[in-house]
Amino acid sequence: MTQAFTLTVNGQAARVTTHPDTSLLSVLRNELSLPGSRFGCGLGQCGACIVRVDGTVVPSCTTPMWSADGTSVVTVEGLADGDRLHPVQQALLDEQAAQCGFCISGIAVRAAALLESSPHPDEITVAQALEGNLCRCGVQRRIVRAVVKAGRTS
């Protein structure tokens, strides 16, 4: 049976009606036209769908709507300030730190969260923070460099 949920997504109020077991990822992509969070495994193992729910970094694919009701969600689309990219996104672009780019949304969200708690991380700190994000193209070193750089310049 469907149910109505209210939440705030990237600062905007949203109201959706869906089954309580529907994942937050599915709601973002299908109901709210926010496809930036990607479906990679549906198991919370790869990090491609990572968002922040009330500030906490979570995989949206294993976050059911019944647990997201009333929360405030930030997705990759919510990182930029208008046309100005988040420093992490800008650094990823500057370092050309992607190949296929499928994993990069979740990495950008997680790295942006890291810079809030640890504004000037070193490479080891960044790599440890991103341990739950998989990248199959092998761009990890560029990504680490970019996040360290974002911490230096912001």
């Binding site: 996104q89 050309q96 992607a98 296929c100 499928f102 950008a108």
Partner: peptide
């Protein structure tokens, strides 16, 4: 020259670009 990738701005901003994003 190391021209920047044409597709990365979309991907890093999280814009629809992949086949699973088609609607």
């Amino acid at each position: 020259t190391s021209a920047a990738r044409l597709d990365l701005p979309d991907k890093i901003a999280g814009r629809p670009r992949f086949i699973s994003d088609m609607r």
